[in-house]
């Protein structure tokens, strides 16, 4: 599991890659939170295209990221989620509060 980030203007891109399970989720949230706290972006794109596996732990990571952004008025979108991850996020109703799979302007 890796978390990379890139700041473009006031938009923070977070790239998740590898296997996002319970074992990886804690560290992923720590790294995501550190990047958010440092930059406090108004817009954040969580790019999931590099994930080779995700279980319900990924739902908690997306919700945790959403809550952290929302606490200071930031917005989150999930981009390029693999079908499998999108299916899980939709099953949990996350798509009702965070847009999923939106095309992102580079």
């Amino acid at each position: 599991m890796r978390v990379n980030w890139e700041l473009r203007g006031n938009r923070l891109f977070l790239y998740l890659s590898g296997e996002l399970d319970h074992h990886a989720a804690h560290q992923a949230l720590v790294e995501v939170s550190a990047a958010l706290d440092e930059h406090m972006p108004l817009h954040c794109v969580l790019d999931m295209s590099g994930l080779t596996f995700m279980d319900s732990s990924g739902i908690a990571v997306v919700l945790g990221t959403y809550r952290r952004l929302k606490s200071y008025g930031g917005e989150l979108v999930v981009a390029r989620a693999p079908n499998h991850a999108a299916k899980l996020l939709t099953m949990a109703g996350v798509d009702r509060i965070v847009p999923i799979g939106a095309v992102v302007q580079k």
Partner: peptide
Amino acid sequence: SPLYTTGGEERSGMGFTIMES
């Protein structure tokens, strides 16, 4: 039941729902 968890903020409570589905 969906979204029920005793695991705190790092869990989603969706495990059994996912297995069932």
